[in-house]
Design a protein around this nucleic acid. Sequence first.
DNA 1: CGGGGACTAGAACGATCACTCTAGCCGAAC
DNA 2: GTTCGGCTAGAGTGATCGTTCTAGTCCCCG
Lengths: 196, 196
Amino acid sequence: MAPTTSSAATRDRILTATTELFRRQGYNGTTLSQIVEASAATTGSIYHFFPGGKDELTAEVLRVSGAGYGELVEIVIRSALDPATGMHNAFEAAGQLMIETDFIDPCPIGTIAREVASTNEPLRLVAADVMQGWVERLAAVLVDAGIDAAQSERLASMSVTTIEGGFVMARTLKDIGPFLSAGEVVRQLIADALPE
Amino acid sequence: MAPTTSSAATRDRILTATTELFRRQGYNGTTLSQIVEASAATTGSIYHFFPGGKDELTAEVLRVSGAGYGELVEIVIRSALDPATGMHNAFEAAGQLMIETDFIDPCPIGTIAREVASTNEPLRLVAADVMQGWVERLAAVLVDAGIDAAQSERLASMSVTTIEGGFVMARTLKDIGPFLSAGEVVRQLIADALPE
DNA sequence: CGGGGACTAGAACGATCACTCTAGCCGAAC
DNA sequence: GTTCGGCTAGAGTGATCGTTCTAGTCCCCG
């Protein structure tokens, strides 16, 4: 509806290349010259689309990929018979992805959030928005399954916490065992909360 | 037993200053000149004690502070009536610490691990050793409380996963609510596994 | 077919990076 | 009281950081 032909493609290339680099090396570990090379764009293009420089680009990466992950997880969960097995499937899928990609971070947002939380308040706020969005979206799914609002919120928050912690463990240990068994615990927690 | 008077003090100052900086800004976000300033040491001293440079210093920070945290958590847990309330106390204490320090990272290891896991294999291995040590130490406490070995290992791993995930959430949201309610879940999991 | 805005190109900038190196300080050993 | 090695001091290295800036190129619109 809005596209100005090739320009949007360049912007997209910049965003996806940056996301990919962030997944491997985080925010401070990624340089603009790496982004230029990986996206086949130029410095000029980056500053054209993101006049605020690296921080504005990072904020957009957090928003776009954050929304993408939230949507993906919701689809996986809703396509299962119930949210408990759906959550289990999401853990399985993420674990499979990590193995296939040699434990590249499935999602750079937690890493970046922890990197910048004390030093870059605007980016911290964007990351907080994204995570809050995940919790709310997940809580809505649980409410739809008949769990009351307060417990849905707690379970959703616990799910996101466990996923993020699981990423730390899996990536560090290069082993998805702890991640999957954490997923099993979350599955059980949700199953116990489900009506009848 | 070994000390060469003031030299050990300088080495310690370098280590504690680096740990503190890592807690705020991670590995890639921390520069050697910041470490020089914060530790009141000089570049020469840093390379004298850590000839391998930033990476060797980082490895030592991971080992020393990792062992410290592991010890601290074990003491907190063992000083409670049972490991379930002990773990709960540990979450409470960490949460309190975060509030008092305006949500500085209580422990830089997870952040650094995720930053370097794909780009610096030696450091990843050190971080993996540290985390594995935490799990084993925690599992031993649970075994002592009468839980069988396999489940102790699972619960210990889940505890570390939840703590790490909780740090991500609390630090990003500047809210210890999710962290504490995750701690409550872990407390219940351990309590359910305790004999009689 | 001419004008103009969106976009690209990449050289250049000052700052700062991790690190090296030479010089010298200082306290213990004899 | 001189020697010597552990340690400190800090200027200097080349590389690279994020950013700026001036020239373009391209394509749509009239």
